[in-house]
Structures are given as C-alpha cells and as structure tokens.
C-alpha cells in the first residue's frame, strides 16, 4: 500500500517537473527537427517513467537527469544559434538524394538507403515516378523532401499570369457568443461596427457561436441554430454587378444621343469604367 502512495506522489512530482522542463525547452523540442531533439525527447520520457515506477531507486536521481537533459537541450539550442559549425555537427545536414532529376547512388549508399526505401518515401508524398523529381533531399530527421520539375508542379495563379488580390489572415471576433476584443482590434473595428453588422445579418450576439472578419471587412458567422440560414456576404459581387450595369448604361447613352459632344463624353467615361472593372476584378470576385 505504501508503494501506491509513493508512486502517486512521484507521478505528481514528475508531471510538474516535466511540465516545467518542456515549457522551458519550448516548441522547438516538439517539432523534433534535429536528431538531438529527437533523442533527448525520448530519453527525458523514459527517465521520467523509470523514476516514477522504480521504487527501489532514489527518485531524486531521476529528477536530476530530467533537469540535466532539459538544460543540455536548451544549451545546444543556444549554441546552435551562435555557431554554424556547431549546428552542422549537432543537428546534421541533409543529404541530397536526387539532383537534376538523377538519383545520386553514392549518397544513397552513404545513408544506407535502398532504392525501395527512397521510392516508398517519395510515394508517401504522392510521387510515383522518380523521373518527375528535379531535386530531393533526405532531411536530418529522416524525411524526404522533393522538388518536382516545373511542369509537374500544381498550377498557380502566377503560372496563369492572373492578378490576385492579396488576402490578410481573417480575425476571429466572436467565440461562444462572446466578443474577442483582440481580434476586433486587429481587424481595426470596434464594438459598434460589430453590432451594426450583426443587425444587418439579423442575428444577436448570444446566438453566434463563431464569427470571423476577413481582410475586406466582411463578417461571416456560424450560429448555434443550424437550421437558420445566415446570408453570405454579397457586397463585393453586387458592387461588381452595379459597376458593369453603369458601364453598360454609359455605352447605351453614347449610342443613343445625337449631341456629338455628349456622345464623346459618354464614350470616354464608358472606357474609363471598363478600365475600372478590369482593375477591380481581382478584389471583387469571390
């Protein structure tokens, strides 16, 4: 019975200790980018497990080891920041496996990789044909990253020479029916604006489970009652439609008037309007 009590006490102690250590070491440990972080992560875990259940041993020994591993990890991180040489030694470098579309057999051999293992890792990235790969590298943590040849890469608006509006990250302004002041401030709005927008959607704040503001200042909400349809923001598409209508009107006026001077004026303005429509297209669609 005594053992049980001790295990419980030790568990609480190590939960606190591990929490502190991981907080101090930080997010970098979780990402386990380098070999060293990978090893120290596993080791800290097993030391803690051993120290909690190994009743015949002094638990302080285990605690010391956990703390030491934490300190050394932080020290290694700090030194890696300072020195490139140190970084190369401790964190390791990636090995190039495919270059210019050709597999480098010597490097495969050096890493003791078979071609089967390489093609498995490539298949995990949905690459089934080695010939599609321009460049592939084996990262220090054993993952393969691959750059496809240009013609095999997914098409982007840039490839199509389309002009796209830049979009900022949406800000969350309502969560669980409460206003998130931080998001509201980040999007440059205030409470009065929010209440007006909610009124436009004819919902009350209490009914909103989640609400976000996009970079055009349009709000989208999810409400608790899933049966009610909330209108999607239509301001920008509608504006595009009215721009097009005004442009068409100007063209019609220019065709129907007899006055030469006005004809010219309408024509000119219709052309300016068309230019505006082309310019605003990326911002107003979608």
């Amino acid at each position: 019975m005594n053992g049980f009590v001790e295990i419980i006490l030790r568990s609480f102690l190590f939960i606190g200790l591990l929490f502190l250590t991981t907080k101090l070491v930080g997010k970098k440990q979780i990402s386990q980018l380098t070999f060293f972080e990978y090893v120290s992560g596993i080791t800290i875990g097993s030391i803690a497990g051993e120290a909690i259940t190994g009743l015949e041993k002094n638990y302080l020994h285990g605690a010391a080891a956990v703390v030491l591993f934490g300190i050394v990890t932080i020290l290694v991180d700090y030194l890696s920041l300072k020195s490139k040489y140190f970084r190369d030694v401790v964190e390791g470098k990636g090995t190039v496996l495919i270059k210019d579309g050709k597999i480098l057999e010597e490097n495969l051999k050096k890493e003791r990789f078979t071609i089967d293992e390489l093609s498995t890792l490539l298949r995990e990235k949905n690459i089934f044909k080695v010939a599609d790969v321009e460049f592939a590298i084996l990262e220090p943590r054993g993952k393969v990253t691959a750059l496809l040849k240009k013609e095999n890469r997914p098409i982007t608006p840039k490839d199509l020479q389309m002009k796209m509006a830049n979009e900022k990250e949406p800000n969350t302004v309502i969560m669980d029916g409460n206003i998130i002041e931080e998001g509201l401030r980040a999007s440059g709005k205030n409470r009065a604006w929010l209440y007006t927008e909610l009124e436009k959607l004819s919902v009350t704040l209490d009914n909103v489970f989640f609400g976000q503001v996009d970079s055009f200042g349009e709000i989208t909400v999810d409400i608790y009652d899933d049966k009610i349809q909330v209108p999607a923001p239509t301001q920008r598409p509608l504006l595009m439609a009215s721009l097009k209508k005004a442009q068409a009107d100007l063209e019609i006026f220019s065709l129907s008037t007899d006055c030469e001077k006005s004809k010219e004026m309408y024509k000119e303005n219709a052309a300016i309007m068309q230019g505006l429509i082309d310019k605003l297209e990326p911002y107003l669609n979608g």
Binding site: N166, K168, F216, G217, Q235, R236, L239
Partner: peptide, 11 residues
C-alpha cells in the same frame, strides 16, 4: 466603405 474597411494596403 470598402477602402476604409479593407486591411490590405493594395486593396
């Protein structure tokens, strides 16, 4: 109103 409400400078 869109010019005032947008966050992106180019927009």
């Amino acid at each position: 109103s869109l010019a005032l409400n947008s966050l992106d400078q180019s927009a």
